[in-house]
Amino acid sequence: MKKFFKILLVVIFVALLGFSGKYLIDSNSKSPIVFTTEKAFKTSIEEKTVATGKVVPEDEVAIKPQISGIIEKIYVEEGAAIKTGDLIAKVKVVPNEQSLNSARGRVKNAQIVLNNSKVEYDRNKALFDKGVISSQDFNNIDLRYNQARQDLSNAQSDLQIIRLGSAGGSSTANTNIRATVSGTILEIPVKEGDQVIESNNFNDGTTIATIADLNKMIFEGKVDEAEVNKLKIDMPLKVSLGAIRDKEFDAKLKFIAPKGDEEQGAVQFKIEGEVFLDKSYFIRAGYSANASIVLETKNDILAVKEALLQFDKETEDPYVEVRTGDQKFERRDVEIGISDGINVEILSGITEEDDIKVWNKTEPVKKEDEKE
């Protein structure tokens, strides 16, 4: 029985050796990767950058009230076309109690002064008609009487302005909020019943509506500090909108910010470009957009595919491997220029005759039946 187990162990051991040997032979018999080569070529390269941003109206006007109160009525809707002078909303005045009381007091005081002046005027008028007093004395009394009447009128107007927002007979009531420019209503951030604050030296006031001309749009975006020095005013842009596919709008660079803002560790500079609109498309304010900017163009230059480049792990200098024999290659350091992300300019290091190694070639994946 022991001899049987010994023989069985020997058979199993021999079988394992056989399988291991076959695996090693198969592994060593695999053919090495055969690297192919490509040559440098002459082409044209455009170096571009893309600025992300949005399209907005060139000018936006915020309409603010000239008096505080409550929105009584809104006469327009967002998106409506409007002209200068059109009525947007009406404000109901809620007077300050202290100011109202003070104005009423001034009216009463002016009325008392006027009554007294009237009595004096009537008495002296009768004396003047009889020739008792001189013309000069009567003229002084008449002047005081007229001044008292004017003071009462002014006090009454002030009281009416505090109560109603405008004096009687005024051609333009402060309670009527009208458009100051022509355009499209972009936003009405208030609703009927909301309280609003007047615009003055200490407060910007509540915005009743925002108006803009949607026929004059600009692109607002940002570019990285590494590329901002390559930009020039009046450079052409190609603007594509997220809301309108397969359409690019021509634009012209009109502003480059003199100061950058740091965002997530990188300094970004604001740019603006005038967009030339196509009347067959309706562009809404705030559409997200990308602007493609050609920074530099070179024609008939020596280039290779960017995928052929390798970079030194220590110096990060670029190089390629050039064939010297059958599956034999040597390193060649190269100097590169502009790139479009696919092809890169070669300034020195190789020629059109050199065969450049496709270093990132991989073995084709075998199918299941081939493995078997």
Rank of each mutant, 00 (worst) to 15 (best):
K2G: 06
I7K: 15
V10E: 01
F13I: 15
A15G: 14
L17V: 11
K22A: 04
D26K: 10
S29F: 05
S29V: 03
P32A: 03
I33N: 09
F35Q: 12
F35Y: 15
T37R: 06
K39S: 13
A40L: 08
S44G: 05
E47F: 06
V50Q: 07
V50F: 00
T52Q: 14
K54T: 09
V55H: 11
P57K: 07
E58F: 01
K73D: 09
G79E: 10
I82S: 02
I82Q: 11
D86E: 15
K90I: 03
L100V: 04
Q111N: 13
L114T: 07
K125S: 08
D137T: 06
L143S: 07
N146R: 15
N146V: 08
Q156I: 13
T172I: 03
V181N: 12
P189L: 11
D194N: 11
I197H: 02
F202K: 12
D204P: 08
T210D: 00
L214Y: 01
D224E: 12
A226T: 07
N229Y: 06
L231R: 08
P236M: 07
S240A: 14
G242T: 11
G242S: 14
A243D: 10
I244A: 06
I244T: 12
I244G: 02
R245L: 02
D250G: 14
D250W: 04
D250R: 12
A251T: 06
K254T: 11
E263Y: 11
Q264E: 07
G265H: 03
A266N: 14
F269C: 07
K270S: 04
E274W: 04
V275E: 02
F282K: 03
I283V: 15
R284E: 10
A285Q: 11
A291I: 10
T297L: 09
K298R: 15
I301R: 09
L302G: 02
L302F: 03
A303N: 05
L309P: 14
F311N: 03
E316H: 10
P318V: 07
V320A: 02
T324R: 09
Q327V: 05
F329T: 03
E330R: 15
R331G: 11
D340E: 09
N343Q: 14
E352H: 00
E353D: 14
D355V: 00
I356V: 06
N360M: 08
K361P: 05
P364F: 05
V365T: 15
E370Y: 11
E370P: 10
